[in-house]
Design a protein around this nucleic acid. Structure first.
Length: 692
DNA sequence: TATATAGTGTTTTTT
DNA sequence: ACACTATATA
């Protein structure tokens, strides 16, 4: 182990051996924070002889947790196939996965059933719409998403419906208060909790039951938290309560990379750590192992304009041989073509893989033009983020069947599947079933009653009863089936029997692809086939896992993603597009200084992803919401010192490419046309547009 | 209940 | 430009 410490620099070592008491590690971009954290865990176990089960490490993504477990296994020389719940491994997971585990054991204390289901964003949407409808609120003025956002923010601040009502100060808040109450009521009726509840209810239990809290304080004696700048109030209190007794709380983060405040993350948590824990040891990791000094300097130019931050100065031993390149494109198409061109050129010249590049943008809408250009130039690309696997309709539908089979009270899942595939059962019939249902009755039981009851045809038309009976039998059959068969077999069964397969294959265009998605789900489910209560574990995992780790990394392709998705990643060459006022910084952020600081951090995160070189692109004019607008260079671009920048004009770009690749017909032809286009000025734009 | 049409609002999304 | 949703109509 002490051998291993040689692999760390002095500051990192300091952070590792300071095992007792509160520790704040301010880890700059690329300073090896995950490495430090992992070593610290290994050090605690090997040198300090702390039992692994007394260590809790919290990350923000399942991916990060998975990677950390892998690295710790290696450091501790543990077998690869060891169970993640083994006593030889510390507890490592996201806030949500840790809290769900706690809730499964303790939630009955506060009157919930312990086999609750977890509603994701889509489920929440459906539920809140139902609430709004039932309360008779008009959606002309207020959008469901706004109300949901307000409720979520409130939950993140640990404010319950009653407390919220007391603080109501406006008409809008009054509506939110009403919705909040009913929303929670409906959740409870469906034995469901939402993402925010996972943390909030755990804290509630800790506060109400000191004995229970103490048990967890004893268990998690050593606490470590990654990405601390992204914690919200609820998570902050959760940690505070757990750390109260032993005060062994080590947090790692970088206030300069806080980019999720709009989701409730509070930078103040990291900025105030020393106030909360006056005896805290503060260690700053400033040596950067990723980028060149030029990149670090340029990034510093931008971040240094922020007032609300701790100061630090990143440095590197890497020498800089490349400046930051800025390119003024004619429009977004030229911008995209420049990148495609440049990637082709550099890939050859520097012997890079496509996955060594990355294109980053502020908004998802910007990806389309890029995709078109990559297709045109025949460059494989991959969109990171975007529509997630588990959010695709066919996957959600099949999962809803499983959820309903497992929990026949689950109203959201019920409404999702009752008429998919079409069974001619609409809102009217659904309404009748639900409103006639007794409190203690499951939805399925009520349907059974209707279908087999004496006066069934008085209650509903014959046709509907027949359809409902088919649905009832489908669910019943599969409930029985699920008792004797594996999850994957169950999925298969549901997929065929429900007529879902038949339905999606009618979609000539995407049917086959959608079918393959379901088959992909089957592959995921296979992993749970040998587990005791496979269905349960499978649904749990599916509710908490996003799709990030499912990216097929095999194919070499250029990753395209938002600046947010890029956090934590690194690439040799990084392109940031749309360095324009209104895009980066985004127009919605220009009103408040706080939000402007976040945009600046976003830009900082983007630039510091680059190991060798960063390109900053902007346009002269851009098509936005269907109309062309003249663009203004981003203030962030102006903030970078002149001597760090190399500006390439359109003509220079053409010259470089002609010289280096005069044999490429495609390219030659394209730029000839573009040159003519530019000479011909703006007036003829529409005419020439057709050529490209 | 399914489908056509007009109207609307456009950030970011680790769980 | 475009996708999504609420409303009208078959």
């Amino acid at each position: 182990m002490s051998n291993l410490l040689f692999q760390l620099n002095d500051k990192q070592k300091e952070a590792v051996i300071q095992t007792e008491g509160p520790v704040l590690i301010l880890a700059g971009a690329g300073s090896g924070k995950t490495r430090t954290l992992t070593f610290r865990v290994a050090y605690l176990i090997k040198e300090k002889k702390v039992p692994p089960k007394n260590i809790l490490a919290v990350t923000f993504t399942n991916k990060a947790a998975g990677e950390m477990i892998e690295r710790i296994k290696q450091l501790l020389n543990l077998p690869q196939n060891i169970s993640p719940y083994s006593q030889y491994l510390p507890h490592i997971g996201t806030f949500h996965s840790i809290c769900v585990r706690i809730l499964r054991r303790e939630i009955e204390k506060i009157g919930y059933k312990k086999n609750f289901v977890i509603y994701d964003e889509q489920d929440q949407q459906t539920l809140i719409k139902r609430v709004i409808k039932d309360l008779g609120i008009s959606t002309d003025q207020i959008r469901p998403a706004t109300i949901l956002g307000a409720i979520s923010g409130t939950k993140n601040n640990l404010i319950g419906p009653e407390d919220f009502r007391m603080e109501v100060g406006s008409y809008f808040e009054e509506i939110v208060a009403n919705c909040y109450e009913k929303y929670n009521e409906y959740l409870k009726k469906a034995d469901a909790i939402d993402f925010d509840d996972i943390i909030m209810l755990t804290v509630e239990i800790f506060k109400k039951f000191p004995k229970t809290l103490e048990r967890y304080q004893e268990l998690f004696r050593y606490l470590m938290v990654d990405e601390y700048q992204d914690t919200n109030q609820a998570q902050y209190i959760f940690l505070k309560l757990l750390a109260q007794k032993y005060r062994n709380l080590c947090v790692v983060g970088d206030d300069w990379q806080s980019i999720y405040s709009w989701r409730g993350a509070d930078v103040q948590n990291i900025l105030n750590f020393e106030k909360d824990y006056p005896e805290a040891k503060v260690i700053t990791l400033e040596q950067n192992y990723r980028s060149t000094q030029t990149i670090l300097d340029a990034a510093y130019c931008i971040i240094s304009k922020n007032i609300n931050r701790k100061d630090k100065k990143l440095w590197t031993e890497k020498k800089s041989d490349q400046l930051i390149t800025s390119y003024e494109a004619l429009d977004e198409k030229d911008e995209a073509n420049f990148i495609a061109r440049e990637i082709k050129r550099l890939k050859k010249k520097m012997k890079l893989k496509l996955s060594n590049f990355a294109v980053l943008y502020r908004t998802n809408a910007q990806s389309r033009v890029l995709e078109e250009a990559f297709i045109k130039w025949g460059i494989p690309y991959r969109i990171i983020g975007g529509v997630k696997f588990y959010q695709r309709k066919e996957i959600k539908d099949i999962l809803a069947y499983l959820f309903f089979i497992k929990n026949p009270s689950d109203q959201v899942s019920f409404e999702r599947i009752i008429n998919v595939p079409a069974r001619k059962i609409g809102t009217k019939t659904i309404q009748k079933i639900l409103s006639s249902k007794k409190e203690s009755q499951t939805i399925l039981d009520r349907i059974e009653e209707i279908v087999f009851g004496q006066k069934s045809t008085e209650f509903l038309p014959k046709e509907k009863v027949k359809r409902l009976k088919q649905f009832f039998e489908l669910i019943k059959r599969n409930q029985d089936f699920s008792l004797k068969n594996s999850v994957s077999k169950l999925i298969e069964n549901v997929f065929f029997e429900s007529g879902y397969e038949e339905m999606i294959l009618k979609d000539r265009e995407n049917g086959e692809a959608r079918r393959e998605n379901v088959l992909e789900l089957l592959t995921v489910a296979n992993k749970f086939d040998n587990e005791e209560n496979g269905l349960e574990i499978f649904l749990e995992e599916v509710a908490l896992v996003s799709q990030t780790d499912r990216d097929l990394e095999k194919l070499d392709a250029v990753p395209l993603m938002t600046l947010h998705s890029a956090k934590g990643l690194e690439y040799e060459i990084v392109f940031i597009v749309g360095m324009e006022e209104g895009i980066l910084p985004h127009s919605r952020s220009t009103l408040s200084e706080k939000e402007m600081e976040e945009e600046r951090r976003l830009c900082y995160v983007g630039i510091t992803r680059a190991k060798q070189k960063a390109y900053l692109l902007f346009t002269t004019s851009r098509n936005i919401y269907g109309s062309t607008q003249i663009s203004i260079r981003s203030r962030f671009l102006e903030e970078i010192d002149e001597h760090l920048l190399e500006k390439i004009s359109f003509e220079e770009m053409v010259k470089i490419n002609k010289k280096e690749e005069s044999n490429n017909e495609d390219f030659y032809e394209y730029y000839e046309k573009k040159l003519i286009f530019k000479k011909n000025n703006w007036k003829k734009k529409s005419k020439l547009k057709k050529i490209f």
